[in-house]
Amino acid sequence: MIALQHYLAVSAVLFSLGMLGILTRRNAVNVLMGVELVLNSANLNLVAFSRFGPGNLQGQLFAVFVIVIAAAEVAVALAIVLTLYRLRRTPNLDEADILRG
């Protein structure tokens, strides 16, 4: 029998992997992939709680909004990555360094 905790464990691992990607990657697009893993893990939580909890659909609806927000965020982020690449020809984060103080 697969219980709630099984799904939570998968989500915890996915969250940790996302954080690992965010912490170790230099490429902006790669960091965004890490963020997507984190968002997916949170969504998995929401849906699992919705299924095993008091039986309301609140978790699922929350998850739908998260997906919409993620799409909007990625669209804006990539627009900026592309503009920046056009301006200085690198997608790496630590070469974005005129702002220092």
Binding site: E36, N40, R51, Q60, A63, A71, V74, L78
Partner: peptide, 29 residues
Amino acid sequence: LGADFLAATQLLIYVGGILVLLLFGVMLT
């Protein structure tokens, strides 16, 4: 988990939208 609508949304938006955007990002940079 019995979330059929969400599974379809996941495939349509994440795979069809967000992933394609990210791939564009990789290719164009």
